[in-house]
Design a protein around this nucleic acid. Structure first.
Lengths: 256, 256
DNA sequence: GCATATATGATCAATAATAAGCAAAAACAG
DNA sequence: CTGTTTTTGCTTATTATTGATCATATATGC
């Protein structure tokens, strides 16, 4: 393995695990501790990792909730880059919809400079994060709480969704299957909410990191043809854009 | 765990709890007190925490819980006694409604032993408190967040309320006027929600401590004649029960 | 206000991690 | 092929982190 390969993989490992010890890495790659330290030193200069005694951690902006804490750290850099791109879709005065999920949560942090936005979400965490910001009109969909995702689902949420028409919906997903052309999620009621979000919005922007591509979960959310835009990180296959174009999805690939 | 991780988690802990003792932290992270003190010292320089004797506090408290936090301590003994009485009104299988507020919040703690209850609330804090308990079906009304009370109000909440019929509604208030025979609250939209809660329930139980009696606020919630029961602490005037009977309210006075 | 509890800061020793220097091996350029 | 550069592993000196100790400072109870 070349040095550059190793460094890339260390970075990948860190993005996934959010932490790594020098010793683990040296065993993982069968090189000496010194070599890992040199790698980390160089990575620290160019990329957003932070060295600490014993290893390195991913630099991540402040608070993460314990409830979804574990997953939130997966591919955090990808999600942040995706969120940075997604915010370009938002114009002052828009009425937007934020799906619950770790990717859309990153988008929240980018919204702090906005004003004159109407934001609807089914995530308690997102609402709490946005509640402080003046100039934003934030509404929470009600319903039953799914603790796994901190999403509110069920009749209350559905009924409230039917009261509104949204300009842009930002949706996350657990699986994106190119063969069947569908997006999926593990839970049926959550899928229902996502589907309603999509149908009740003029434009749908799907935010997903590359790890979701090719995955198929239990509950179908929607056909890819119902999606207008897809923002994804650059670790996708070369023909991903073309594949998605077949379903009429406009793909934006972001560099991390 | 790396030092940087530990410091990040201390900060996270502080953001949640807004305070932490050196001893708690040292046990939490399995390190010595000295280490925690060093961590806090460094965190104090870069982040917005303040060290004090025995621990540290958050400089700018996450005002979310703080606003209700202050009031929560007022007349706490009265509220707990009232809550203990209120729980006697609840039978297995009931569909109940919990208004947001510090008094109804005390009722939540009494519900932990129940199962087979449907609970609807417009308080995020109450939902989070109840979400863990198995056997309870908890639903949150959606809407706009009123930070002062952590209540969800507005069209989403109203629409959701119209979807349901409730056995017993537990309502708090800011003012109870015997002369005019009305209960009041400072905010119009909040008053609307409370009013709808009352009209959509077969029985309404008003929970109030003596400090609210005689007070009149800006927005009228309902006439006292719409209330079925009133639970109050024993620091009320001797003729309070009779006064309320004139409005057909069944008064329960609790000792503290 | 005084006595007692407890918390703190400074210091030190032990351990672990790192940086620096050096040499061997591999890759590279001419 | 030869000299040079790069990468790597090893050794050693240096540094960082931590827990323990103790004198001092601060809170708390009476």
């Amino acid at each position: 393995m070349f040095m550059e390969e190793r460094k890339a993989q260390i970075l990948e490992y860190l993005r996934h695990m959010s932490r790594a010890s020098v010793h683990d890495l040296s065993q993982q790659f069968n090189v000496s501790d010194s070599t890992i330290r040199r790698d980390l030193k160089e990575l620290e200069e160019t990329d957003s990792i932070k060295r600490t005694h014993g290893g390195a951690i991913l630099l991540q902006p402040v608070s993460f909730e314990a409830s979804i804490g574990d997953r939130k750290k997966d591919y955090i850099a990808e999600k942040q880059a995706i969120a940075k791109k997604a915010v370009e879709f938002i114009n002052p005065g828009d009425a937007i919809l934020l799906d619950s999920g770790t990717t859309t949560y990153e988008l929240v942090k980018e919204l702090k400079s906005f004003s004159n936005l109407s934001i609807v979400t089914n995530s308690i965490i997102i609402m709490q994060e946005l509640a402080d910001i003046p100039g934003l009109d934030v509404m929470l969909l009600g319903g039953n709480l799914r603790r796994e995702t901190s999403a509110l689902v069920g009749p209350f949420a559905e009924q409230s969704l039917n009261m509104i028409r949204i300009d842009k919906a930002f949706i996350g997903t657990n699986g994106l299957d190119l063969k069947e052309g569908i997006i999926t999620t593990p839970n049926l009621t959550e899928a229902r909410i996502k589907r309603m979000m999509i149908t009740n919005s003029r434009h749908t922007i799907l935010m997903t990191d590359h790890s979701k591509i090719g995955k198929v979960n239990f509950a179908k959310v929607a056909d890819l043809s119902e999606i207008d835009f897809c923002i994804v990180d650059n670790q996708v296959s070369a023909h991903f854009g073309e594949d998605m174009n077949r379903y009429d999805v406009n793909v934006h690939i972001v560099n991390i």
